[in-house]
Amino acid sequence: MTPFRQVSGPAIPWLKPNTDTDVIIPIQDLLRPGREGLGERCFARLRYREDGSENPDFVCNQPPWRGAPILLAGENFGCGSSREGAVWALMGMGVRAVIAPSFGDIFLANCFQNGLLPVRLPMAAIRRLAAHGGGNASVTVDLERQLVIAPDGEAIPFATDPRRREALLDGLDEIALIQRHAAAIEAFRAQSEAERPWQ
């Protein structure tokens, strides 16, 4: 997993509620192996016109936000399918942190598995960040201090699950962490199979 400490840059204002993972990455782009090229396909249905050319009206195609590292979103971002390709696509497009009032549960877990930081803030704070908009207004997301710094210097605190925060800061390997419990796992299995053999 890619560790995450801090990121600074323009913040894409995409404040729609219920952005689902089908919109973030179409399933047809996930039928081939590997993650290469998924960044090009992030938000493909919005980013490109039918003829394959870029849609200039879509925010991610507009100058200050092209390749921007922070995405501002509405409620329930990443709802729907469990496809981890949604996270790979966002990261492939350059996004390292998404700020939204709420996230789809499975998408949230997938973010932490890959080093994309989901930040929960109230919608009012997100609107304030979005209002700075355009130009070179730069937002900073700092996981160590758990602060979002707005372009005008306003520092907005956020909370992250302590276990996940630690894993992100250190880029921990989850399989290795689980394997530390090998003895407990084996004891549990033996007991469970004895007590409930059908299970």
Binding site: S82, N110, N114, R189
Partner: peptide, 14 residues
């Protein structure tokens, strides 16, 4: 679960 958790589950049953 997503792809990463699936690999963890398959590797450890947990």
């Amino acid at each position: 679960i997503g792809a990463s958790e699936l690999a963890q589950a398959l590797a450890t049953q947990c």
